[in-house]
């Protein structure tokens, strides 16, 4: 292995560490703000893995949409919706994490056996490449209907979120 391949491998494992560390922080932390921070770290690591998988565009989109939009929205959800005494979660007993760990380990072992036993066959012929131009062309020609539908879904989600978050406010406070 050449020097650059070693560096590449080290950077890959840094990203894997970010994914796992952030994920554990997101699920283990009692303070919700720390959990959102862990989620952001984990999603940054996933963006690095997208870069390793040959798609810098998706890495940037991951940072823009997940870290920039979703995490910020969850932070607003914490700060607006909860009074400060409830930002720390309460009422977690001993049995709850134990049962969750049992379920997680069971699913993990099952899927790990499935992954290790499957023999993957690559496609015989690959057409197209990872370039942004080809991606945009495919998105606008072959998957045009799905592209329009996802914009309708997003518009519906925005209008629905406004209606849900506004409901009941007028009678109570005015």
């Amino acid at each position: 292995m050449s020097f650059y391949q070693n560096v590449n491998e080290i950077i890959f494992f840094v990203f894997v560490f970010l994914v796992l560390f952030g994920g554990i922080m997101a699920v283990r932390s009692r303070i919700l703000m720390h959990a959102v921070l862990g989620l952001a770290v984990s999603l940054l690591g996933v963006a690095g893995l997208y870069f390793h998988l040959g798609s810098p565009f998706l890495a940037l989109m991951q940072i823009l949409i997940y870290v920039g939009a979703v995490c910020i929205m969850i932070v607003f959800g914490i700060m607006v919706g909860y009074t400060p005494s409830e930002v720390r979660e309460q009422g977690i007993g001993v049995a709850n994490p134990f049962l969750a760990l049992t379920a997680g380990v069971a699913v993990f072992i099952t899927l790990l056996i499935a992954i290790s036993r499957t023999v993957w066959t690559p496609a015989a012929a690959v057409q197209g490449d990872f370039s942004l131009a080809y991606l945009g062309e495919t998105l606008m020609y072959r998957y045009c209907l799905a592209f329009e539908l996802i914009s309708v879904v997003l518009l519906t989600a925005i209008v629905g979120a406004i209606i849900l978050a506004r409901g009941g406010r007028d009678e109570e406070h005015f």
Partner: peptide, 24 residues
């Protein structure tokens, strides 16, 4: 790696005691 992320999500879903934690 993606299996680990799924398992962490499942664990957090079952263990968190708040809606925001489940959303995360």
């Amino acid at each position: 790696i993606s299996l680990f992320m799924l398992i962490l999500g499942l664990y957090g879903m079952l263990q968190h005691r708040s809606f925001i934690g489940m959303l995360i």
